[in-house]
Amino acid sequence: MTTLFISDLHLSADTPDINACFERFMREEAIHADALYVLGDLFDFWIGDDDNSEFAKRVRAEFKRLTDSGVPCFFTKGNRDFLVGKRFAKQTGMVLLGDETVIDLYGRKAVILHGDTLCTDDHQYLAFRAKVNQPWLQWLFNRLPMAAKRPIVRKVQSDARDTKKDKSFDIMDVTQSEVEKVLLQHHADLMIHGHTHRPNVHTFAVDGQEMTRIVLGDWYEQGSILCCNANNFSLETRPFCTGNP
């Protein structure tokens, strides 16, 4: 059996290739897993649990089908879907996790997270993150009608794209000292995260102890999956295919 990890799919009504690849993955691979972990940015932007568009209903239905089959599914919020809430969890059967979660991965202690909090050199983004995660602001936004929410989201997305153009790749990558700090805090030697869109397996030593950091890939040009079992792990890709599963 296998535990699967995915992140940074950036699903939307405008990404039919990604959506089809995601649905195929859910129905043909995730259905056979020990568990599925979604480490943030499942959506290009989740506008709120009151989204009743056909796209939102279809995504919720995929997770409900999976959890109803008996496969546990866990969700860590990313910087694009921080508005995912209890209603979404109830409708899908998913379990919402905190910013950092320690799991037992076949006998190995692992820290899982989206990864954005590791980018401590990106001060501008961290200030934005702190602002949008304020409970009172989310409470207010969630009570706006959908017609009012959509232009706000478009403005936020446009500003984010413009800001990203002016940033160096180094600033948007993780800070090694923060990676080590988080691992030591949780007494773990394995970290799994997404966010940076730079799939890779990094090994390094801290105080003589070997540690591993696995970075998940994005789904912009193909599906990207981390497959783990009791013996090993592998970062794998899945091609986009035409047509629906």
Rank of each mutant, 00 (worst) to 15 (best):
G115F: 01
E29P: 03
L118P: 10
Q124P: 02
A147R: 06
K155F: 05
R129G: 10
C241A: 15
K64I: 08
L105Q: 01
F25G: 14
L126V: 02
V182F: 01
V156W: 04
V59M: 06
R80Q: 07
T3L: 13
Q222S: 15
L235V: 01
E210W: 03
F204V: 01
P16K: 00
G98R: 00
A130G: 14
R238T: 09
L226D: 07
A160F: 05
Q185N: 14
D51N: 12
M146E: 14
F128E: 12
R154E: 15
M191Q: 13
K181F: 11
F128P: 12
L144D: 01
I47T: 10
L83Q: 05
V174L: 13
F22W: 00
P239I: 06
C21I: 07
K57P: 10
T76D: 04
V111R: 03
L184V: 14
D49W: 05
V38E: 09
N133S: 03
Y37A: 01
R161E: 08
A110T: 13
A56V: 02
N19E: 00
R198L: 05
C119H: 13
A160K: 00
G107I: 03
F45V: 01
A127Y: 13
N229G: 09
I103W: 09
W139S: 13
C227W: 02
T101C: 02
V95H: 14
D17Y: 09
L42T: 02
A160E: 08
I152S: 05
L235W: 04
Y37T: 02
D218R: 05
D162K: 15
V201K: 05
H202G: 00
K155P: 04
G243R: 00
L183K: 07
R129V: 03
M172V: 03
G107H: 09
H10Y: 01
E180R: 14
